[in-house]
Structure formats: structure tokens, C-alpha cells
């Protein structure tokens, strides 16, 4: 075949350029460690998401010192959890799956970007150095309101990041003279032990209790309330652990005829109570 000399030179130059491109990309993958989204995760049917250990409750979990995993579920037209909160100076692996159609998961202005396909789990590991706020968008058309599908990613300063959760439970009413208990549950999502103080306040009373919650464990605290000291009426209470606060109102009544307590005794009594209450309301 007859090829012009210049054309031969051009051909060689083009091939060198092509091989050069391949070499730089290979260096980027192997040398810099920018790996591709791949098939390393097991498949997960959308039906099984609710019962799944990771995606049943979409959340961020600590798995090592400065290492976190975020389990994210995309569905028309939201991301869960939202916002996603992670600490600065951390390494976060996102696991993302879809409940319905194909979505995208892209942290705006960064190269954190993946397709989200129902039945599959995408994983990508990202390092966050500085505190910042990012938007997350679905960048694959997913239906009528695709353009409303967004979320937030907040990288908070390490010191402000906490994975503590507080819940409190208490009766609404108590009979004058009885005791009741307010139960607080402190959950520590972090790996390290949490040493802190729980504060319970009701009326003028304040109770403080030191508590140590082991890593990824929960502790229950019980605060006993003597209704005699409070006296009849409504009393607001709060439980505080670090920046978390739970509150409620306890009503002390003279004669407790709550449905739960008397209703369980006899049907007849229950019926009478309801009638009586109905009568009261009408009056």
C-alpha cells in the first residue's frame, strides 16, 4: 500500500498520542488509585431494602478511626438519609442503591458521582479533609419530578461531629402520691466509648447522672419522679445529653382513671368511663 511520507508520520504521531492517553489513564487508575465503580457488592433486590441490615435504616456508621460508611437509598424523588452528615478529616465509603428506577448520585462540583441502578449497590470511597457543605443531585432522568431530586452533604468539623442519639419515654399522667419513671436511652454510634453526663429536669428539680456508653452500644437511664413533691398540675421535663435534648409534660392528677389502667380490669368499667368522659366533654 502506498502511503505518503507525511501521512506515515502523522499516523505514528497519532498512535503515540493514543498510547500516551492510555498510559496517563492507567497511571490515574493504578498510580493515583482512582478506582472504578465495580461489581464488588452483592446484588440487592428493591424488595429486600427494608429488611436489609445496611439499607433498612439509611444512615452513616463509623467503622474505624476516621472511617465511616454511609448507606444511602435513592428513590423517586428523594435521597435517604438527608442530609448526610460526616466529619472532616475522614474517609467515607458510600453505598448507594435504588428502590425503583435508575438514578444518579452526584456530589455537586466534585468527582463523587455514580449511577444508581435498582438491584445493584454502588460503592465509592471519598476523603473529606475540610468542613464544607455540598449539594447532592440525581443526575439521571428518573421521572416527572426528576428536577426536584436533591439532597445535602454536610462535612462538619471533627469536634462538632457526634453520633449520639437520645430518646426519652415517660407516662403522660400520674396519680398524686405515686412514683413514675422517665426513661432515657442514649445510643452511641461511634466506635469509642462515650463519657458524658445526662441531666434531667422537672419542675425545680435537677438530677445529673454520669453515664458511659460503650462504642456502638446503648445505655438506658431511669429518672424516678415523686409526684407528691411536684403537686397537682402540668410539669414540663427535659432530658439533656450533650447537645441533644428530649422533653415532655407530665400531668399529676388527683384521681387517675386512665383507660389503660381501669379499662383492663373489666369491660363494664371501661364502658362506664368512656360514657363519663364523653359526658364531661359535652358539658
Amino acid at each position: 500500500m502506498r502511503i505518503h511520507t507525511y501521512e506515515k508520520l502523522w499516523l505514528v504521531a497519532a498512535l503515540v498520542l493514543i498510547v500516551g492517553f492510555i498510559a496517563t489513564i492507567t497511571y490515574g487508575s493504578v498510580g493515583l488509585g482512582i478506582s472504578m465503580i465495580d461489581d464488588s457488592e452483592e446484588t440487592l433486590s428493591p424488595d429486600e431494602i427494608n429488611d436489609d441490615e445496611r439499607f433498612g435504616e439509611p444512615r452513616v456508621e463509623q467503622v474505624g478511626e476516621n472511617e465511616y460508611e454511609a448507606y444511602v437509598v435513592a428513590q423517586t424523588f428523594i435521597f435517604q438519609p438527608d442530609p448526610i452528615e460526616v466529619p472532616a478529616n475522614s474517609r467515607v465509603t458510600f453505598y448507594v442503591t435504588s428502590r425503583d428506577v435508575i438514578h444518579g448520585f452526584a456530589v455537586v462540583g466534585t468527582n463523587t458521582n455514580t449511577m444508581v441502578i435498582p438491584g445493584e449497590v454502588s460503592t465509592l470511597t471519598v476523603e473529606f479533609d475540610e468542613p464544607d457543605e455540598y449539594g447532592i443531585v440525581c443526575n439521571e432522568y428518573c421521572g416527572d419530578f426528576h428536577h426536584t431530586m436533591e439532597g445535602q452533604l454536610t462535612v462538619v468539623p471533627e469536634a462538632e461531629f457526634d453520633m449520639t442519639e437520645l430518646e426519652a419515654e415517660a407516662d403522660d399522667e400520674v396519680e398524686l402520691g405515686d412514683e413514675t419513671t422517665v426513661t432515657a436511652t442514649v445510643e452511641n454510634g461511634a466506635l469509642n466509648d462515650l463519657e458524658t453526663t445526662a441531666t434531667f429536669e422537672i419542675g425545680d428539680q435537677t438530677v445529673e447522672e454520669d453515664v458511659t456508653v460503650a462504642g456502638q452500644d446503648t445505655e438506658e437511664l431511669a429518672f424516678t419522679v415523686d409526684s407528691t413533691e411536684l403537686g397537682e398540675g402540668d410539669h414540663d421535663w427535659t432530658v439533656t445529653v450533650d447537645d441533644h435534648e428530649e422533653s415532655g409534660t407530665l400531668t399529676v392528677v388527683e384521681d387517675l382513671e386512665g383507660e389503660d389502667e381501669t379499662g383492663a380490669d373489666t369491660d363494664g368499667a371501661n364502658g362506664t368511663d368512656e360514657d363519663a368522659e364523653a359526658g364531661d366533654t359535652d358539658a
Binding site: V108, G135, N139, H146, H147, E150
Partner: peptide, 14 residues
């Protein structure tokens, strides 16, 4: 980071 294939690439959160 403006996405393709969207009617409204104007978002509330960022």
C-alpha cells in the same frame, strides 16, 4: 456540576 437532562437545574439546597 450542572446536571444534564433536567427541566430545572436550579436547586434549593446549594
Amino acid at each position: 456540576g450542572i446536571p444534564r437532562r433536567t427541566a430545572e437545574p436550579q436547586y434549593e439546597g446549594f
